[in-house]
């Protein structure tokens, strides 16, 4: 059971990672990031059921999700502002700062 959940979590994490590194659309990258966070939250929640001090793990999951939500608000705002600025919301349209 534990191995299975860790496998799912790991798979989600690496899918998210692949999206973050490989995809060019900002929204897709953003989704990949959220996938990574959810994978970690899944693993945390699972470990909380096993550990002696379980409550700590559940508290962690709740707080992590709250923080992730706050982060999502900021991220989506930024993506929207890129969209409103008339540029395609893609990674490659933001390359003025370099060198």
């Amino acid at each position: 059971m534990s191995a299975l959940i860790w496998a799912v979590s790991g798979l989600l994490f690496f899918l998210g990672l692949a999206a973050v590194v490989l995809r060019r659309q900002l929204l897709a990258v953003f989704l990949g990031m959220e996938l990574m966070v959810v994978a970690a939250a899944l693993a945390l929640g699972h470990e909380a059921t096993r550990a002696a001090a379980g409550a700590e793990g559940f508290v962690a999951v709740l707080l992590v999700l709250a923080v992730a939500a706050a982060e999502a608000v900021v991220g989506l705002t930024l993506v929207l502002r890129v969209h409103w600025s008339g540029r395609p919301a893609e990674a490659d349209s933001l390359r003025e700062l370099r060198g």
Binding site: G16, V29, M33, M36, A43, L44
Partner: peptide, 23 residues
Amino acid sequence: VKYFFAGGAAAALFLMGMAVHFS
């Protein structure tokens, strides 16, 4: 945008590390 995406990815890494450490 660059700061956000890189920072978000790093935070996700931290979180995963935390889960592994917890286990």
